[in-house]
Amino acid sequence: MLTFLEAAKKTGVPGIHLGVDGRNTHAFGFYEKMGFAELEQPDWGAVFGLTF
């Protein structure tokens, strides 16, 4: 993940967003530790975002 985020930054991407299935509870903590913030909670899970 760190390699991906660094590559995205180098190419000028302003940020990343992703969806996490609500059943994947471990992923919620993982993305929060990576610096992502929860943007919304649709019925199926959550959308996280990270601005560079």
Rank of each mutant, 00 (worst) to 15 (best):
E38I: 14
V13D: 02
G12I: 11
H26P: 12
E40L: 09
G29D: 15
G15F: 08
N24R: 09
T11C: 10
G45S: 12
H26A: 10
L18T: 04
F28E: 13
E40S: 14
D43W: 05
F52R: 08
M34C: 15
A46W: 08
H26E: 12
M1H: 03
G12E: 08
K33T: 13
D21Y: 13
E32T: 01
F4E: 14
Q41T: 15
T51H: 03
F48S: 02
E32D: 02
G45F: 04
T3R: 07
H26C: 06
L18G: 04
G35C: 05
H26G: 09
E32C: 00
A7E: 15
P14F: 05
E38T: 12
T25C: 01
E38P: 09
H17A: 12
G12Y: 02
G15E: 08
E32K: 02
E38Y: 06
A37S: 13
D21C: 09
G12M: 06
V47D: 05
T51G: 04
A27G: 02
G35I: 05
G49V: 06
F48M: 13
A7L: 13
V13I: 15
H17N: 11
I16G: 02
F48H: 03
F48Q: 01
V47S: 01
G19I: 08
A7P: 11
F4T: 15
F30E: 11
Q41M: 12
L5N: 00
G15R: 06
L39W: 08
A7T: 13
W44N: 14
F48Y: 15
T3Y: 03
M1N: 00
G49H: 03
L5Y: 05
A27W: 00
K9A: 11
G12A: 08
M1P: 00
K9V: 10
A8V: 07
A8F: 03
V20W: 07
G49W: 03
G49N: 04
D21T: 09
T3I: 07
D21H: 13
A46F: 01
G35D: 04
F28H: 14
M34N: 03
P42T: 01
G49D: 02
V47T: 11
K33N: 14
G35S: 07
G15Y: 08
F36Y: 07
F30C: 14
G45H: 04
A27F: 01
G15V: 04
V13Q: 10
H17P: 02
P14N: 11
G19W: 03
E40H: 04
R23A: 06
T25N: 07
K10V: 11
P14I: 13
D21S: 08
E40I: 05
F48V: 08
E40T: 12
H26Y: 09
N24H: 09
E32W: 01
Q41G: 05
L18P: 09
L5G: 00
H17V: 11
R23N: 03
R23M: 00
G45N: 04
P14L: 12
W44H: 14
N24Q: 09
F52Y: 13
T51Y: 01
T25E: 11
G19D: 10
D43F: 08
T3H: 07
A46V: 03
A46G: 05
F52V: 06
Q41K: 15
K9Y: 09
Q41A: 13
G49R: 07
K10R: 15
G29M: 05
A7N: 15
